[in-house]
């Protein structure tokens, strides 16, 4: 179990470092959604199922969509 936890935590840090550094802005948003999904698994491990449900719906879903729509509006989906 502790190996899984360490793997997830390392993945969290990697996602956090890489997400805003990605060359295309769209990849940044997708990596941020991945960050949200990993966080929701971490919350299941921390025995907080309420948080896991909310994070899966908001952190991975709604926030990602809002970022995507903004990128589309400021025309940053194609170039970096």
């Amino acid at each position: 179990m502790i190996y899984l936890e360490c793997l997830l935590l390392i993945l969290l840090i990697v996602c956090a470092i890489v997400a805003p550094l990605a060359k295309r802005a769209l990849s940044a948003v997708i990596l941020f959604s991945a960050f949200g999904i990993i966080l929701s698994i971490v919350w299941l491990i921390l025995e907080a199922p309420d948080l896991a449900i909310t994070e899966a719906a908001i952190g991975a879903g709604v926030t990602g969509i809002l970022f995507y729509v903004t990128l589309k509006k400021i025309k940053r989906t194609k170039d970096d």
Binding site: D50, T54, A57, G61, V62
Partner: peptide
């Protein structure tokens, strides 16, 4: 059970979107 107003609102809005 796990859930409540905040989680349910988020899921419902996801479905609406």
């Amino acid at each position: 059970s796990p859930g409540g107003g905040f989680s349910a609102g988020a899921i419902l809005s996801g479905g609406l979107i």
